[in-house]
Each structure stands twice: as C-alpha cells, then as structure tokens.
Amino acid sequence: MSYDNLVTMTGINNNLYFSAQKTTTDGSVTHLTDSEDNGLWRYDVLSHDKEKISKDSYSRIYACGDEYIFLSKTDKSDFGIFTVDSSNAELYQMNLKSKDIKRIA
C-alpha cells in the first residue's frame, strides 16, 4: 500500500492517526483522485493493526487528550474538484473509543 499525499498525522496511546489524500494539480485547481488509500487511518504501533476510520480525508489532526482528537478539513467529503483556498473550513471531533466523528464548528 502507498500513502499518496500524506497530509497530516499525530499519535496518542500507541496509535498513529493519519490522513492521506491522492491529488493531482491542474493549474491552481487541485483534483482529488479516487483511491483506496485516501481517508483517515488508525495504525496500532504495537499490534500493527490498521483500519480505515473514514473515507474522508482531513487536512489537519490535533491530538487533544485520551478521549478525543480534533480534526479539520477544508473540502467536502465527496470526491471531485477541490480548491485549496476553500473557505469552508470545518472542525470535527472524533471519539477515540467509538470512532464517531461529529462536526463541532
């Protein structure tokens, strides 16, 4: 497996959370490319288990504690034309146990 365009990552409690997003650039516009590698992943550095938590890619991950991590993204979840300068910044909170992700701002 490859992690095309690894965007962000952080680690807590022996788990690495990272987001990958395959893109191609045409002029000033960045296109998301459909790929199985895209999305938000969790990797356990002890057991080496790996799982895809979400098919959505996130542009930044902020680790904030044992219960939650906070993530943000600028694009919508559906693949298509995606501009880097999008003003639709969204902030999400993910529960580390249930893996539920909800938008909080």
Binding site: D4, L6, T8, M9, T10, G11, L16, F18, Y43
Partner: peptide
C-alpha cells in the same frame, strides 16, 4: 511530517511512513 509519541518517532514522507523506534515501515 514527523510526530513523536509514547515510544515512537514516526516520519512520513511522500508515500511512506517509517517508525524509527520499531525500525519498520507502516504497511
């Protein structure tokens, strides 16, 4: 990208992520 947590120094670049503590790439 680099991050350090628990016992791990992890560096990701391009299409590879490497754990320097475990001396192995993440599959």
């Amino acid at each position: 990208l680099a991050c350090i947590f628990d016992n791990n120094l992890i560096i990701g670049k391009g299409n590879a992520i490497y754990n320097f503590q475990a001396k192995r790439s993440i599959p």
